[in-house]
């Protein structure tokens, strides 16, 4: 399949195959007016196959914490006039605010709706996050 490059925009590359849609939803890309393409199972030398998201807006502010949480191996390329002007590697963020919700029914966030859902990285090696209120572990297997 032939996929055109974009002139101005952002390319999220090296997304683990199958996770493209999840990233799309987490970044609320459905709310954008610009063109957005999700490419699934693109052949990759390094990964075998991967997903790619292309967004036709180079100035879009993305939540890198959310991206890093779902897949810390993603690379973010900013393209202007057909040239890649910026390449970012995301990593597991120290803190996540309103990216995931605490699933503990006894957590204070279940009754106090205005509280932000905040998780902190408890173990970088294992990629474990815990709710700052009730210490409940968040599963990264979204």
């Amino acid at each position: 399949m032939k996929i055109d490059s974009i002139k101005d925009g952002i390319v999220l590359d090296h997304i683990k195959a199958g996770r493209g849609m999840l990233i799309y939803q987490l970044l609320h890309l459905e709310e954008l007016d610009c063109s957005v393409a999700i490419l699934k199972n693109v052949p990759s030398k390094k990964m075998g196959k991967k997903d790619i998201i292309k967004i036709g807006d180079a100035d879009l502010q993305l939540d890198f914490n959310a991206i890093g949480y779902v897949d810390p191996d993603i690379t973010v390329n900013v393209i202007r006039n057909d040239v890649c002007v910026e390449k970012k590697h995301v990593a597991l963020p120290e803190e996540l605010e309103n990216v995931i919700k605490c699933k503990n029914p006894r957590c204070i966030t279940t009754t106090e709706q205005e509280l932000p859902h905040i998780f902190r990285l408890a173990d970088r090696h294992e990629g474990i996050y815990r709710c700052i209120y009730c210490d409940t572990k968040a599963s990264r297997h979204l």
Binding site: N104, R106, C107, I108, T109, T110, T111, E112, L115, C131, I132, Y133, C134, D135, T136
Partner: peptide, 24 residues
Amino acid sequence: KEGAPYVASINATVPVINGGDGGH
């Protein structure tokens, strides 16, 4: 509710002691 005393502690201007929050 678990975490309620923590929420109190970050909003109070006096010390807060957790006297028990759920099973936490």
